[in-house]
């Protein structure tokens, strides 16, 4: 179980209010979000289901270690922030 918050810049494309969803890993948590809102997937993940190059996911305040499989473990106190990676100055 984790609370997931999405960058405000994504809200103009897909409405994604903060949500608490089940899951043992970042991947499972995100899949639970995408089950509620399928359109969100393509904004966060690429065709290979890896995190998009210019996106970053913070997991209890730290960028996730596994950007490909998103295997970082979560527990009931985990907060996940899906953000844009800094780019463009």
């Amino acid at each position: 179980m984790a609370r997931v918050v999405f960058t405000a810049n994504l809200q103009r494309h897909v409405s994604l209010p903060p949500v608490t969803v089940p899951g043992q890993t970042v991947r499972e948590v995100l899949e639970a979000v995408f089950a509620l809102n399928p359109q969100a997937r393509g904004y966060v993940l690429d065709e290979a289901n890896a995190l998009r190059k210019h996106m970053v996911i913070f997991h209890n305040g730290e960028p996730v270690l596994d950007r490909i499989h998103l295997s970082d473990a979560v527990d009931d106190n985990t907060e996940i922030y899906v953000m844009q990676a800094l780019s463009g100055g």
Binding site: H13, G42, E47, M55, S87
Partner: peptide, 26 residues
């Protein structure tokens, strides 16, 4: 979109309104 990838939109009323449609993917 630099961060969110490539997206496609379609308008059927001359550009007054738009709707996101599927994006081609391998």
């Amino acid at each position: 979109h630099g961060h969110f990838g490539v997206k496609l939109q379609r308008s059927e009323d001359g550009g007054a309104t738009w709707r996101e449609i599927a994006t081609p993917a391998y």
